[in-house]
Structures are given as structure tokens and as C-alpha cells.
Design a protein around this nucleic acid. Structure first.
Ligand SMILES: [Mn+2]
Ligand SMILES: [Mn+2]
Ligand SMILES: [Zn+2]
Ligand SMILES: [Zn+2]
Lengths: 144, 144
DNA sequence: GCTTCACTTAGACTATGTCTAGTTTAGACA
DNA sequence: TGTCTAAACTAGACATAGTCTAAGTGAAGC
């Protein structure tokens, strides 16, 4: 039994068991980088000889999100995209090609924007910038 | 042929034909209010003796969104929610019960927040506040 | 080392959205 | 007003995303 890594500690602090699967999912997201779907995570785990049931990947991502180890990048329709919760940030989504890129959060904090008139408690604030990315504007813009 | 309503004009200005279906979809969203899924719109149309193919409802909502007559309320997984694009605003999503409520946009403009360092053109900015709504906090909070 | 309950599993099931090929229609123009 | 044609609509098959259930497994408290 090795010394508990930070991830294991974070899990237990959130009242979750530090299972092989959850640790592998966090590692996969951190290693892959970017914004991954549940099925992409599943594939990455399988490639690492850590086959995990599809339902479990969805459950793990959900649990990890609530525990704050993983964040969701809202980007409209299609599969939900997850990423390792390193630093809080926002997203730019290209409505032409679907690409998602990070936008730094000026405050580096999940509650960076004030919420006037909200009836309830605000946990975090996500800003989604939508538009056309530079590759889609440029000379070689894809119309597909 | 009656005089063109504003909606018909808006459609033609966007290069779209002012069809019976599209007009009915906008009317349904305006009359229903709130944040509706494609299937809820479909049901509302049917109740109005205006049965429309499911694929057409999806297409119409997509076209109307691009034309600026309808807006999407991003709210995480689940069906995409549409609403009549009256005034630009943001959303508060309760992570406990899933309720979506409007949050006024201080600037009343789709480009209310500055996007530092984005590689491309920003068309609009949506802010999503996530947390727990007052009914879910209050004494009679549902755990379901 | 036990015990227990949270976790994981396979796979059926539901929900959400897309595609295609044939038909209809809005709106341009004569 | 009648004709024409690209755009829009249709039904329904298909694809993708996510949920549920009941039985087996393992992390962690003792
Ligand atoms: Mn990101
Ligand atoms: Mn709204
Ligand atoms: Zn792009
Ligand atoms: Zn609530």
C-alpha cells in the first residue's frame, strides 16, 4: 500500500471511496488534456489495459465532477465534455467547426461573475463565448 | 395574403422562407414561455392542430436559432432547451432539481462580457450560474 | 482477517438527435 | 395569375448519448 496521492485524498475528503476506476479516470483526463467525452475516456482507459464498464465511466465522471476533481465544459448539443479541473476557466466554442478552446478566467475563481437577483446559492459560473474560430475565418475556411 | 408580420420579415431578412411551420414554432415558444425542448414544442404544435414532423421541429429550431429569432439555454446534459429570443439574458441552473431560471443581462447585449485572448470572432456570450435554487435549499427541500 | 455497503458490471432500455429519399410549397418571374 | 424550382417538409430508419437494474466485487472500518 503506497502513500495516498493527492487524488485519493481529495476523493476521501469528498466522502467517496478512492477506487482504482476513479483514479484511472482522473489520470486519463489529466494525461489526455483537452475536452473529452465519456466514450473517449472509456477508449483511453481500455488502451491502458483498464477496461471499465460504460455505465461506470458515466458514474465516475459524474461523481468526480461533484467532488470537484473534474469539470464539465458546456458546449451545447452533443456529448458532454469533461476535463481535469486544474484551474477554473471558461470556453470559446466555434459554431462552424465545433472546436472548443479555453478562455482564461480573470479571477481564476468559480465565482468570478456576480449574479444579481439569483434566488439561491451560486456554486460556480461558466462563461461560454460562441463565434467563429480563426481557422474557420481564414483563407482555408472549411465549409463542412 | 395578409400584411407580413414582424416574424415573417425577420425570417426573410435572414434568407429563410417564411413558412407556416417556422412561424408556428416561434409562436409556440413565445406563447409557452420558459425553456422548452424540441419534443415539448412538438407536443404544443400538435395540440394546436399543427402536427409537424419531428425532424422538421429540430430543423426549424436550428434555423430559427441561427436567424436570431430563438435562443438556446445551455444547461448541461439532457435535451437542448430553446426559448423565444426576446431580450438577451443568462441562466441559473439548479444542480439539485434541474430548474432553469433567467438572469438579467446587465448590458442587455449578446456581447456583454469581454473575451480576452480569443482567437476568432465572438458572436455572443452566455453566462451559466450553477448552484442550488431557493426551493431546494428551503425547509421543504426535495432530496429526489 | 472479517464484514459491509459503496462501487462496478453487462447489457437492456430510453432519450435525444440525424439522415435519406420522396413529396410539397414559398416566392420569383413571366 | 400561372409556372417553375430551390427550399422546406415528411415518415421513419438509424445513430448517438445516457440511464437503469440486479447480481457480483472490493475499499475501508473494525
Ligand atoms: Mn477547458
Ligand atoms: Mn431564458
Ligand atoms: Zn472553427
Ligand atoms: Zn432546485
Amino acid at each position: 500500500m503506497t502513500a495516498p496521492t493527492p487524488v485519493e485524498t481529495q476523493l476521501r475528503d469528498a466522502g467517496l471511496k478512492a477506487t482504482r476506476t476513479r483514479i484511472a479516470v482522473v489520470a486519463a483526463l489529466r494525461d489526455l488534456g483537452g475536452h473529452q467525452t465519456a466514450d473517449e475516456v472509456s477508449t483511453a482507459l481500455a488502451a491502458n489495459d483498464a477496461v471499465v464498464s460504460r455505465a461506470t465511466v458515466f458514474n465516475a465522471l459524474d461523481d468526480l465532477t461533484r467532488a470537484g476533481l473534474v469539470m464539465v465544459a458546456d458546449a451545447g448539443p452533443g456529448a458532454t465534455r469533461y476535463e481535469w479541473a486544474d484551474r477554473w476557466h471558461h470556453h470559446f466554442v466555434c459554431t462552424s467547426c465545433g472546436a472548443i478552446s479555453d478562455v482564461a478566467c480573470p479571477e481564476d475563481s468559480p465565482r468570478c461573475v456576480d449574479a444579481p437577483g439569483v434566488e439561491g446559492t451560486v456554486d460556480d459560473v461558466q462563461v461560454i463565448f460562441r463565434g467563429t474560430c480563426s481557422s474557420c475565418i481564414g483563407p482555408g475556411a472549411e465549409t463542412t
